[in-house]
Amino acid sequence: MELRAERICKAYGGVPVLQNVTFTAGPGVTCLMGPSGRGKTTLLRILMGLEQADSGRVVLPAGCRWGAVFQEDRLLERLDARENLRFVLGGAYREDAASGLLEQLGLGDVGAKPAGAFSGGMKRRLALARALLAPADLLALDEPLTGLDEGARAASVACIRRWGAGKTVLLVTHMPSDAEALDAAVVQLDDAAPER
């Protein structure tokens, strides 16, 4: 599924955050990279339709479905890992798929522990599992690897490769090594007007 952002502009209080951002993303991983404050999260929110751009447009096929890892974990903290997945997946929840992914992300032994009792890294991985299992065409992953140690980071990258296959994945990351590991196209949001 192809997504096209055309000359997206956004400013907050007169301060421009995004200026003429144009890029196209197709199936596979596209990394949005750039220094802090360059509007990577804002861009994802505009693409998902959660915010309006000041100008420009987003071209998406009708009826496409998003899955997302937000900047915050946004988990139901009193529910355990599987219940958090069921909340999003409903009837599409499959125990074997959920167990397999949780195992690969190092969350195989969390049992009925509520998500609120998870460490920061565990919450991040659960949020990633939720996005990867969702019946989505496009995935918006806003720094899903933040706070993960080396092993968890590698496992998460492997899961994004495997479970994101065939989907259009937009990944916000600071690490060029993540883009390399995922064979990702890179959209650089920096001081120069981004164009790709």
Partner: peptide, 24 residues
């Protein structure tokens, strides 16, 4: 509001949102 936004992105049905976000 962040949970509601998450639920909207994932297209969680209103009844499930009522049960797990609004009721608590």
């Amino acid at each position: 509001g962040q949970l509601l936004e998450m639920a909207a992105v994932f297209r969680v049905p209103p009844l499930r949102q009522l049960r797990w976000i609004y009721l608590p």
